[in-house]
Amino acid sequence: MSVPSMSRARLQSENQAAMNAPYLTAESLTKTFGEHRAVDEVSLSVPQGEVTSIIGPSGAGKSSFIRCLNLLEVPDSGRLRIGDDALQFGGAEPRRSEIQAVRRHTGMVFQAFNLFPHLTALKNVALAQMRVLGRSRKEAEDRAMAQLERVGLADKAGSYPGQCSGGQQQRIAIARALAMDPDLMLFDEPTSGLDPEIGAEILTVMRELAADKMTMLVVTHEMEFARHVSNQIVVMVDGAVIEQGEPDKIMSDPEHQRTKQFLSAVLGR
């Protein structure tokens, strides 16, 4: 009797291990803008099915780093592995096909939403499905509708972005990213352009995604979210990762002096 229970336990722990294998691994990524080293030898892993939050003061290179991950900025050097795709920077420019392969696996949500203003919410979510994934108009629009429902905006399908509030626009943007079936969602300060009240509705959607085991990397100033939703917190200062670990540990007992300073500033303690 004890054998099956043991094997079940082992199976569980194996599942756990498989769940936590990194989906994304960045090694020594560096990005320079002119003289400024925005991203300085950053290495980090994003485990499959978990939420990783990047926090840190403004200008720490958090956004630049996350933009390197789907190659909106091409890093100057370092290595990047996303799923089965591996890229090495510093030599030849990555080929268009390599860039597209990485982007096919990642969804991105921007601070400024960047919805397509001349298209309805439904078309915003359906367009790339048709053009990139080759889905029929019917299938793309059905799935777009399902994603809009998921973010609570089915009734806005026919509206243009300009007719929606900021919070609604950001939720449409999340639906647009989800409709491409990404394996990893990147969020670049998704609530920073919004009133705190409105930001809360975005965080709710993100919590639901986390509960669905979506792999997420979130650049955020929302300390509550970072602490209670993420499995891992990464602290970036001056382009470099200075500390990373369990949210409770980082929040209550940070090791690095700079982390303490930052947290006391944002948490007001």
């Binding site: 597209q100 982007r103 096919r104 960047n114 397509f116 367009l127 491409m180």
Partner: peptide
């Protein structure tokens, strides 16, 4: 707009 288009692989 270019970045959003790139992010969905257009």
């Amino acid at each position: 707009q270019f970045e959003a288009a790139a992010a969905v692989s257009l």
